[in-house]
């Protein structure tokens, strides 16, 4: 999970597709696009003539808007397909859906699906670049990239940083991508959750585990809270939300014992009062709004990496500054 990608990145399905050098490259490209985003007209012609289709089999307003905004700021044409799971179940296969959309002439398909691996299947059938916008419990690589960017922005670097990922790791695509990305960049990751909300085995995972948030929180540089879903209660994974909050929620009392410079992060949408106290989400140490803002620039970087300037070439940040910034001057 470290080192440069062995070949030019064709799809972004998993953080492992990038490796540490690939993540760094996305970070550098993001710096350029953050600069673009600050302009009065935050738009560059870098992907003019390219078409980006978002294919969402699961509702996700924020991720879809973030990708579509990113594509538009790169001057790509965008198409959006929202497919309700029920209608697909009755009708065509995933392959037929993917081929139908590709036939409309798209260069990139951004896929969100409730099933782990669905973007990998799509990538095996189409010539277009595929970006995983979240698949089941598996990965959400652009979320991890924007999380890395946000941590670097606030703390300088991830190397040696102690990151706690707290909550429902078992069912979290964000956690799987974050673990891969944070550890690739040298962070020291600890998962904090009851055993029922951890994967069935962590063999081979470069993480530590704690079942005691109070014991590990005071030393942490980053507290990354995951959303706990109500349905986990009915699966007997935790007895009640109240008990979950008491043991694993970032309450005001717990937040007061964090280090002064510790960051609080959350992928959204938050359950205020459950995994995070309402007051804590709004503290200066909270980077939650930064995460959303950085999402657009990170997704611009990813689309540019996959589609910009001929994707047979590994781009550098200098290339993109020249291509993106230069053209728009």
């Amino acid at each position: 999970m470290t080192g440069a990608p062995a070949r030019p990145v064709r799809h972004l399905l998993s953080i492992d597709d990038l490796g540490a050098d690939g993540i760094d490259e996305v970070m550098r490209l993001t710096d350029a696009f953050v600069e673009v985003s600050r302009r009065s007209i935050p738009k560059v012609p870098a992907l003019r003539g390219k078409t980006v289709a978002s294919l969402f089999f699961e509702d996700s307003t924020r991720t879809r808007l973030s990708f579509e905004t990113a594509a538009k700021r790169l001057s790509a044409d965008t198409m959006s397909f929202s497919v309700s799971t029920s209608s697909v179940r009755k009708g065509e296969s995933l392959r037929d859906t993917a081929l139908t959309i590709e036939a409309m002439g798209v260069d990139c398909i951004v896929v969100r699906h409730r099933s782990s691996g669905a973007p990998h299947r799509v990538a095996s059938w189409v010539d277009a670049a595929v970006v995983n916008a979240g698949d089941g419990w598996h990965e959400h690589p652009t979320q991890a990239l924007l999380d890395c960017y946000t941590i670097r922005e606030r703390l300088g670097s991830l190397a040696g940083r102690r990151v706690l990922i707290v909550g429902d790791v078992k069912h979290s695509r964000v956690a799987r991508s974050d673990i891969a990305a944070f550890t690739a960049l040298g962070a020291d990751v600890t998962l904090v959750a009851p055993p029922t909300l951890l994967p069935p085995t962590l063999e081979g995972w470069p993480v530590s585990v704690s079942h005691d948030l109070d014991a590990v929180a005071p030393d942490a540089d980053v507290i990354y809270l995951l959303r706990i879903q109500q349905e986990r209660m009915t699966e007997a994974l935790v007895p009640s939300l109240r008990e979950y909050t008491a043991r694993y929620g970032l309450t005001v009392r717990r937040a007061a014992r964090l280090r002064d410079d510790a960051l609080v992060m959350h992928p959204g949408p938050m359950n205020r009062g459950v995994e995070i106290a309402p007051e804590v989400a709004d503290l200066p140490r909270s980077a939650i709004i930064d995460q959303v803002r950085n999402g657009v620039a990170v997704r611009m970087a990813v689309l540019y990496l996959l589609l910009g300037a001929g994707s047979d070439k590994v781009l550098t940040a200098d290339d993109v500054m020249e291509a993106a910034v230069g053209e728009s001057r």
Binding site: G117, H138, P200, T201, W205
Partner: peptide, 15 residues
């Protein structure tokens, strides 16, 4: 199978 691959791939396993 519930094990290293179900954990990594994020798909529920059968023990």
């Amino acid at each position: 199978h519930e094990g290293v691959w179900s954990a990594k791939l994020g798909i529920a396993g059968q023990p």
